[in-house]
Design a protein around this nucleic acid. Structure first.
Lengths: 363, 363
DNA sequence: TTATGTGGTGAGACCGGTCTCTTTTTGATA
DNA sequence: TATCAAAAAGAGACCGGTCTCACCACATAA
């Protein structure tokens, strides 16, 4: 087996030109598919190219054209179903428009995100889709625009940047979910998110992730509107892994008047919460109710199946991809925030409590 | 907001050189971190670079060095947890070695795979990791070697190619799972896979995906060894989506002596099988038993939790990444197939039937 | 016949880095 | 102060494409 033995220098247009006995320029015209060449010469060059197994060097091509045909994506975590679905949507849109995709994981860490963005700028991608880990540190994102590259934000919006963003209708989704629980008679509602937060103090306006912030705002607004006291009391961040989540849940339930319903901010958190409750021997929805964001596969096969906020993530990704492509192709469009609507998929994880009408005596 | 207004030409080494009042070569030495420069000049150049917000053009850099610092991955479907986990493993290994990753989806279609491979060769990636959709069409994979690029196969092996492969121990895994079922007293075992197959006829040696083939071989060998008749009878491919799976299951169960246990070839198939059985009102494991490949998140939260073959996919990905990096760095290594061992995670989806000892009267 | 295209081809600059080779500067030594 | 090697800086070729421009031959119009 010595077919892989010769790591010989790749074939270039010049080689093909020589073999076809034409000038480099002519060979390049045929191979690159531009300009005019006579049919005869074209065949000649094509034959030579085939014989030599010529493969264009996209790097060189990109360098002279200034377009790489690649769009860069920086996501929080591909392992998360939310992002892998989104990536799929983006890739599909990209491929349809003739672009390829290069993916970087930030792990939701700002530093990693910065260097990923820098690197992709360096690679001269034609455009960038980023899921910003924080909405309050945006210098590196400004660089993108300054480098003349279009940028589309995904899942989180940063109005100050003045770039397009594709998000869910997070506030409305949280409102729908919370309202559903309130209407089922729940008076003590908890919201659990994976957002990593430094200090213990919770200040809604300070939440650096717009998706999380808006959900919390929506959640809180429902409780306020329903006249429930202390709406922030059961909002908990930091459920980043199973032990953390177990701790969060345990603390929540050890309260004097523990929550009877929990809203989980994504499917990973939802799964962790589910496992936590299960390990505590609590039954859903008899002992406690829950709703999770994202219609992940596990939510429909549990007992009971989980009521979820269905985010059409694939569509979000596709939309982001299409938007970026439009920007790359310089189609004039106003900068806007595209919201993809969500819907509540009602299954059986929320119990109706305290009769049909709202109870007045609870606070 | 006119900060994104000026799509000015990016800053080059020449610009920095001019600003720093040194030659282009000197500026390049500082910026590229090679050669020798005096400390004073270095500071001078760095200052100019910072002032101008210089960002190296990686494209140009790759072109002259011949290394892109990118490794290409072609996977079947990122949306599938198996691949997204693998991609994570590969990326982590790559990043550790200073490489970035560009991902392409083949959708398990040969054509898409071919053009993805071609494109990545064109982009002059430093190496390629591919999950070949079929093991019998390998011309495009030979091209990789001929282009002087290292290639590592993932999940499936093709000995004829003479390149490294990282796979699970598929045969042993299937044997362990099947044996577990046989030892639990099952006499009619089914194997369900998503492999797309043209003709209806099933010829094991013809299965073009080595992972699937080896699993089926292992599965069959256990049945044969246990003296069960017609071991191929319940091997079914084509469970590519829910309706297809429903049909497969229905056909399987309408048999005169229907299988009492099903082995699902990946977590997606497993989930579909689970839903199928659920929708038929069958209870697991009382009415029917099942085992799924891959310890996907849903398998632990169903009722009952599903016994699974735990494939350490992240490790597989990491291993593949590390191997490829080693090849890129020309570390001399024998071509080999690296097998990552699996283990059976026993939960509660397999019923013990027909007493403790094997029943002799069943065939 | 001369002027004016025009399709087809070749020569060579260019993209933005790297890197080799040459020239200049430096400083230590005789 | 003269000598010389080493260190530092500069000039320019090169990577493999694209693309502008010049050129030629031939066709058509004046």
């Amino acid at each position: 087996m010595e077919d892989s033995a010769a790591p010989k220098r790749p074939v270039t247009v010049a080689d093909v030109a020589k073999a076809a006995r034409v000038s480099k320029a002519t060979a390049a015209r045929v191979l690159g598919g531009y300009g005019v060449v006579s049919g005869k010469i074209k065949d000649q060059v094509m034959a030579a190219a085939a014989a030599l197994e010529y493969r264009p060097n996209e790097l060189a091509r990109s360098m002279s054209t200034g377009r790489s045909g690649i769009i860069g994506i920086v996501v929080g975590d591909i392992e998360n179903a939310f992002f892998s679905l989104a990536v799929r949507g983006i890739s599909d849109a990209a491929r349809l428009a003739g672009f390829n995709v290069i993916i970087s994981n930030s792990g939701e860490k700002l530093d990693a995100e910065k260097s990923a963005v820098d690197l992709l700028i360096g690679k001269r991608v034609d455009g960038l889709i980023v899921t910003p880990a924080r909405c309050d540190s945006i210098d590196h994102l400004r660089h993108v625009g300054r480098a003349g590259m279009p940028l589309v934000l995904f899942d989180r919006s940063i109005p100050e940047l003045g770039v397009d963003a594709v998000t869910g209708d997070d506030r409305e989704a949280a409102i729908a979910a919370a309202r559903f629980m309130v209407e089922a008679g729940h008076r003590h509602l908890a919201y659990v998110s994976a957002m990593d937060v430094e200090d213990g103090g919770l200040d809604i306006a300070r939440i650096s992730n717009s998706a999380v912030r808006e959900r919390v705002e929506g959640f809180v607004s429902v409780l306020t509107e329903a006249g429930l006291p202390n709406p922030l009391h059961y909002v908990r961040l930091g459920a980043t892994n199973q032990p953390q989540t177990d701790a969060v849940i345990k603390r929540l339930l050890s309260n004097s008047s523990p929550p009877t319903a929990i809203l989980a901010s994504d499917s990973l958190v939802g799964l962790r919460v589910f496992k936590s409750l299960q390990s505590l021997g609590l039954s859903i929805p008899d002992d406690i109710s829950m709703i999770s964001f994202l219609d992940a596969d596990w939510t429909s096969v549990t007992v009971p199946p989980i009521t979820v906020v269905d985010q059409r993530v694939y569509e979000m990704g596709k939309l982001a991809g299409e938007r970026l492509v439009a920007r790359i192709e310089q189609i004039p469009l106003a900068v806007e925030r595209l919201r993809v609507s969500t819907s509540l998929v009602i299954r059986s994880s929320v119990a109706r409590i305290g009769g049909l009408g709202p109870k007045r005596d609870v606070n």
